[in-house]
């Protein structure tokens, strides 16, 4: 009975990309570097869009700036400046980018930094689109969009792998609808299943999506609370 009496022992937060790079020791290991690169590659696009549309840089310039920004972070051992208790990774990145953009050292950094690490393939960057605006807002909007898009992609591939294309189809028709507001009835008609199944599929898909989101967020979050806050921000 003891465990239940104590309300259940809390399990440790699983190791995330974030927490693994925060671990002390071996600061320059290849593994750590790879982890950071992965972390950055995920959030490359919001940073790019922010620079391109928020700071209004031309395409080529923006690509360089983003590359420099990440390289600078890596070289500076930026994690020393980060207090994980103080906030979300997103806020940190946003603030770091703002500093970087305002920092005159940027130009000098462009020449010597980079360390040869190419953070992300830059193909297709020219087609990235976002509305110009306040850099922070652009960043957040782009962040939101990329997180959701990534989660929906994963949902699609998960459900397809599991042979549940129909579940995804229902979700797509209902929760990702464009234009006219769908009803259970209209989705049922289009997919040829019962309305009650529409409801169940929808419920299941939403649950999956949420789980995927939580997992993805946990890759850059610091702890459960951080995940919770971030998910609340993302889901409105």
């Amino acid at each position: 009975m003891e465990e239940t009496a104590l309300g259940g022992q809390e399990r440790a937060f699983p190791t995330t990309l974030w927490s693994s790079i925060l671990k002390p020791g071996k600061p320059d290991s290849d593994e750590r570097r790879r982890t950071i690169e992965k972390l950055f590659s995920i959030y490359w696009k919001p940073v790019y869009c922010c620079v391109r549309f928020g700071w209004n840089k031309p395409v080529e310039d923006a690509k360089d700036v983003v590359q420099d920004f990440f390289a600078d972070l890596l070289d500076r051992d930026f994690l020393k400046d980060v207090d994980p208790a103080k906030g979300r990774f997103r806020s940190f990145l946003k603030a770091a980018l703002r500093n970087f953009m305002m920092n005159e050292k940027r130009d000098a950094a462009r020449l010597k930094r980079g360390g040869g690490a190419k953070i992300v393939p830059l193909d297709g960057v020219e087609h990235f689109q976002a509305a110009p605006g306040d850099p922070d807002q652009v960043f957040d909007a782009e962040w939101l969009r990329s997180v959701l898009a990534r989660a929906v992609d994963e949902l699609r591939s998960d459900l397809t792998k599991a042979g549940k294309e129909k579940v995804f189809r229902v979700f797509e028709l209902y929760d990702l609808a464009q234009g006219a507001e769908p009803t259970y009835g209209s989705v049922a008609k289009e997919t040829g299943i019962a309305e009650s199944d529409v409801r169940n599929h929808l419920h299941a898909a939403r649950g999956f999506l949420r789980r995927i989101l939580i997992r993805q967020i946990s890759e850059y979050a610091v702890d459960e609370r951080d995940v919770e806050e971030e998910i609340r921000w993302i889901l409105g």
Binding site: L144, L148, Y174, D175, L176, Q178, R206, L209, G236
Partner: peptide, 15 residues
Amino acid sequence: MDPGMILRLRRGQAE
């Protein structure tokens, strides 16, 4: 992912 889509998706999650 356009803003309308995000809105609907969020609505579904709110439910």
